[in-house]
Design a protein around this nucleic acid. Structure first.
Length: 597
RNA sequence: GCCUGAGUAGCUCAGUUGGUUAGAGCAGCUGUUUUGUAAACAGCAGGUCGCGGGUUCGAAUCCCCCCUCAGGCUCCA
């Protein structure tokens, strides 16, 4: 592909504009240039490579290659070495505009490039060249390869051409790149730190949950300590919902297939449902959602406009078939418990209801200390139920509700579910990946299909407005986020074990048990480390378990009826009476405080 | 589901040009130690090397199938 001479036009423009480009923009350009340098390196090592696309992404870049043989991690250092040579040679980037005809000739052996050329609407296309590598590219690029100061190739992955799973899979190499070596090192360090907070790792270390080959992938077993955390969240959740006018309900885990045919789930979500089982000649499925049960409860009598809104809430466990490659710890599983609720209301009540849900969602996020989340308003997709006008109106209502609470949000165009617009709140986990948390969805489909109505003031039947919503997402995913958010250092109210009493020697055991029973009677989760081990070991163990309070008791404490309090932050509190400590702990629990002072 | 890589004791990991009864630390058990703020000492026990097939005189090691996991892609009501 090499050997053509290009006139440097854009690079000059870039130099002229350089003062105006922001640092972010500059970094993005550098990353993009890094992708080109990587492509050149791959071309020189594998001359038969076919080139896909190679954009800048968050933290770095990637390039997709079609190669007749698989790349292995061993190839990365070779490619890196070659890239470093190219960078050391500091070769200039040059660009040129050519006609599509010329471009097609140039890329005659590059099927992916030809496809891209065909899709560009303009008559001319632009090319960028550095060294022997020419690429179809909009640019811009850095002036020369020497401006790429710090990069590292991090992984190889398969990626469908054009993101379409029905097309060929190319091999993608991911790289990270920063403006300086220091920034790169800091980034890699951050990744390492994030990996330590990974809920899968902490879940094992802190004995919170497990997933078993024997039982099946994506099926979570909550250990006692994990179950405590979950139960506390559930209790809090239930109490808060009751305060806010929800009714708690329970619905069965299986139901007749016909129900799911009526709802349209069988038709639309067939791939996510587990196969039917036959019971007395009838087909049943395990529920993938809770909404139908709530609708059946609603429909047990004729409803008056006076009793709306009705809010049915359920910690409902559902099962969905997720493709094996997507499972991920607690975050993506096959059986999970949604903190679900369905609100049945009049259309004119919709805005207030959405405001209520948003306020609740925000309250929950704040309580658990989540400050990093993104709010998206997803609008009408191409295929949709109901009329465009109703969609329009409902979307406006969602927007107004967000505005009333001064919540910043972005529009996610066309990303609504087919049955209605929705508000999604995405949380970021320790590795910077966004996970779906709270979601509020208006549904125009089910009320129609199940004829969910109320009698209005006018004595006539009207369809209800229906809202599906969760404020945590699912218990599994939420706990995963919590583990990573706190790095396993749970606030006192959620800590599986809140206090560990550590006697210095066996003769202090009686005193230790006395403290234990007094704290336990206050509802504190407390244990005594009664092993004949040295103090240091017991401290270490409690530290590793991230127990908020360690009460060390020895001769001094027994003699003075005091306790010595060590925090997991390694801070040492002054010697104090048990009564004082009881007050400290119970307040920390009641106020759900996150820091230990 | 697709691509690449991985799977050795409860946990973290050693162990390949294929070669005796597969190792270590931690955890567990037993004993000694009675300890003052992040690991006392000694001994014991613990493994069909993910499953199943194959190649070979001989397989943790090489090949094939399957399962699971990791990182991506696609998907996520």
């Amino acid at each position: 592909m090499g050997g053509c001479h290009l006139i440097d036009v854009r690079t000059i423009a870039m130099i002229l504009n350089q003062d105006h480009t922001t640092d972010d923009k500059k970094l993005e350009i550098t990353r993009h240039s890094g992708a080109h340098v990587m492509a050149e390196a791959v071309q020189s090592i594998f001359p038969d490579a076919k080139f896909g696309i190679g954009p800048a992404i968050e933290n770095g870049f990637y390039y997709d290659f079609g190669l007749p043989h698989p790349l292995t991690p061993d190839d990365l250092p070779l490619i890196e070495t070659k890239m470093n040579e190219i960078i050391a040679a500091n070769v200039p980037f040059a660009s040129q505009e050519v006609t599509k005809e010329e471009a097609r000739r140039l890329f005659a052996s590059q099927p992916y490039k030809l496809e891209l050329i065909d899709e560009i609407p303009d008559e001319k296309v632009s090319l960028y060249q550095q060294g022997s590598f020419v690429d179809l590219c909009r640019g811009p690029h850095v002036r020369s390869t020497g401006e790429i100061k710090a990069f590292k190739l991090v992984s190889i992955a398969g990626a469908y051409w054009r993101g379409d799973e029905h097309r060929l899979m190319l091999q993608r190499i991911y790289g990270v790149a920063f403006e300086t070596k220091k920034a790169l090192a800091e980034y890699l360090k951050r990744l390492e730190e994030a990996a330590k907070r990974d809920h899968r790792k902490l879940g094992k270390e802190l004995d919170l949950f497990s997933i078993h080959d024997e039982a099946g992938p994506g099926l979570v077993h909550w250990h006692p300590k994990g179950a405590i955390i979950r139960r506390l969240i559930e209790d809090f959740w239930r109490d808060e919902h009751i305060k806010r006018g929800y009714d708690i309900v329970y619905t069965p885990h299986i139901a007749k297939l016909d129900l799911w045919k009526t709802s349209g789930h069988w038709e639309f979500y067939h791939d996510y449902l587990y196969s039917p089982m036959e019971v007395e000649g009838q087909e049943y499925i395990i529920k993938p959602m809770n909404c139908l049960g709530h609708i059946l409860i609603y429909k047990t009598k004729v409803r008056s406009y006076r009793e709306l809104p009705l809010r049915y809430a359920e910690l409902g466990t559902v099962y969905r078939y997720e493709r094996s490659g997507v499972l991920h710890g607690l975050s993506r599983v096959r059986g999970f418990t949604q903190d679900d609720a369905h609100i049945f209301c009049r259309f004119d009540q919709l805005e207030d209801e959405v405001v209520g849900v948003l306020d609740l969602a925000r309250f929950m996020m704040n309580t658990f200390g989540f400050t990093n989340y993104q709010v998206l308003l997803a609008t009408r997709p191409e295929k949709y139920a109901g009329s465009a006008e109703v969609w329009e109106e409902a979307t406006e209502i969602l927007g107004r509700a967000l505005a009333r609470l001064n919540i910043n949000y972005n529009i996610d165009p066309g990303e609504g579910v087919f049955y209605g617009p929705k508000i999604d709140i995405k949380l970021e986990n320790a590795l910077g990946r966004a996970w779906q948390g709270p979601t509020i969805q208006v549904d125009f489909n089910l009320p129609q299909r199940f004829d969910v109505t109320y009698i209005g003031e006018d004595g006539k039947e009207h369809l209800v407005a229906m809202v599906h919503r969760t404020v945590l997402g699912s218990m599994e995913r939420f706990v995963a986020s919590l583990i990573e958010h706190y790095g396993g250092v749970f606030p006192v109210w959620l800590a599986p074990l809140q206090v560990m009493v550590i006697p210095v020697a066996d003769r202090h055991l009686d005193y230790a048990y006395k403290l234990e029973s007094q704290l336990r009677s206050k509802g504190v989760r407390v244990g005594v480390d009664a092993r004949s081990e040295r103090l240091n070991l017991k401290i270490r163990q409690a530290q590793l378990d991230k127990v908020p309070y360690m009460l060390v008791v020895g001769d001094k404490e027994v003699a003075n009826s005091t306790i010595s309090v060590r925090l997991r932050s390694e801070e040492q509190l002054p010697s104090q009476s048990l009564d004082d400590f009881k007050e400290t702990v119970t307040m920390a629990i009641a106020d759900k405080i996150t820091d230990l002072k």
